[in-house]
Design a protein around this nucleic acid. Structure first.
Lengths: 234, 234
DNA sequence: CGGTTGGTTGACAGCTGTCAAGTCCTGTGG
DNA sequence: CCACAGGACTTGACAGCTGTCAACCAACCG
């Protein structure tokens, strides 16, 4: 797990996520204060860990580049994925109450992650109303994201919901909502949705047949949004 | 939907949830400030609505008595339950980002709910560090609660997880973790877990046979915690 | 007492998981 | 550039869990 000593005062100003991460609505001086909050930036290779389940809660993290997944392992040794994290998204706050992180987090691709000490963030958020608002907004957003796929849905509905949710998130980030690249394996998709790889694979085949979307490797191209929504049941 | 004009200055001081709701760690004067935040208290009969999906986000809510469920209805007319809310638990923050509540909330039994205008709460939280901390802690708690049951689990694992989670929450509230009363119907349990009533009913029968727990109507009595955890796979 | 709602139990079908084999992709090393 | 190895992904056969449909029982209430 690498890290870089950096000129923290410009960390946020030059970030690609400035329009939707924590800095939304901040003045230039407030932005500098926030940048100074960032205690370090983790540079992770694919498969490297940002944190381990049970580690004492100290920091929030924000994705500056790349993507991550969080997961736990149950007694049977099965991985259970909580969520995926993309550019500008926050993670770690589920550790506040228990005082330790409830999940392990690892990089899906080469990634850069900002580490923000929680205590400092609280202090500065109390002084900058816009930051406080945005902090809560991002947490709220995350809660909705993780409810987007319901346990009630059939396999087909879940998978459709999953892609619609991704599309929505990427769109928010200024990316193309119709075609995007994810570093998530079929296994991880299946796991996140509570399905098996085989089921996911079969459904992707069916989605392609029905001209809903094409998953070519890690590239997703949504061909028929309305139909996909219909299939998703939303 | 009824409401009571009230002496807001003492609202929090006499509440049964004072030790785990928002007031944790507050001085008496801070407590009064918080109490004054409460714009009204909703008194709901069973089945009455606190809010409807799509209503503009304005307030947080805290459960002062009773219990609630939040849910959406999909295009097929199927109810999809997001969560249940008990004494001292917060709800509504999922509306922050979208600017509207993403779910309908209705009372599972006769309940009393504190309404806390979001803007005011932010202002006061910025001034009272303990309140800010507790606010985030409660939100964090909720995020973990709703991840307690994984989509990966089998029906049996989900149901076991569900009761373990309830037990943990009630324990936190100073109630008996081994035997408790819930106002949740079998249908709502099934729905929350992504199962059918029939499956839940059958599993409850099996749990009883295996001496794990007895569900007599709405009363849950956990007989063998370790075994139940083993079944839950946690 | 009867009607209604909620809960339980049974029979059966179908979706999805399991197991297995085969194919594609990617990175590595010659 | 090619060959190869290993993993990721796809496809098929089959079984079993869970959903669906139906009937029945229990509790509650007018």
């Amino acid at each position: 797990m690498g890290s870089v000593a950096s000129q923290t005062n410009s960390l946020c100003q030059n970030c690609a996520a400035i329009r939707f991460c924590l800095p939304v609505g901040l003045s230039k001086s407030d932005l500098t204060s926030l940048g100074c909050m960032i205690s370090r930036r983790h540079q992770l290779q694919r498969g490297e860990y940002l944190l381990q389940r049970g580690a004492p809660f100290k920091n929030f993290f924000a994705v500056q580049q790349g993507s991550l997944k969080s997961y736990t392992v149950n007694t049977e040794g099965r991985e259970q994925i909580w969520g995926f994290y993309f550019l500008g998204e926050l993670l770690g706050f589920e550790g506040i109450d228990p005082g330790e992180y409830p999940y392990t987090v690892c990089a899906l691709e080469n990634s850069v992650i900002c580490e923000i000490p929680y205590g400092n963030l609280l202090n500065i958020a109390a002084e900058i109303p816009e930051l406080q608002k945005q902090l809560l907004k991002l947490i709220s957003q995350r809660c909705v994201v993780d409810h987007f796929v319901s346990r009630n849905n059939t396999a087909q509905q879940r998978l459709a919901c999953f892609f619609l949710g991704l599309s929505q998130r990427f769109n928010r980030h200024g990316l193309n909502p119709n075609e995007f690249h994810i570093s998530i394996s079929r296994q991880d998709i299946a796991n996140y949705l509570g399905l098996t790889v085989e089921t996911v694979s079969r459904l992707l085949g069916r989605f392609k047949e029905d001209a809903l979307l094409v998953a070519h490797g890690k590239t997703i191209k949504i061909d028929d949004f309305d139909q996909l929504k219909a299939v998703a049941g939303i």
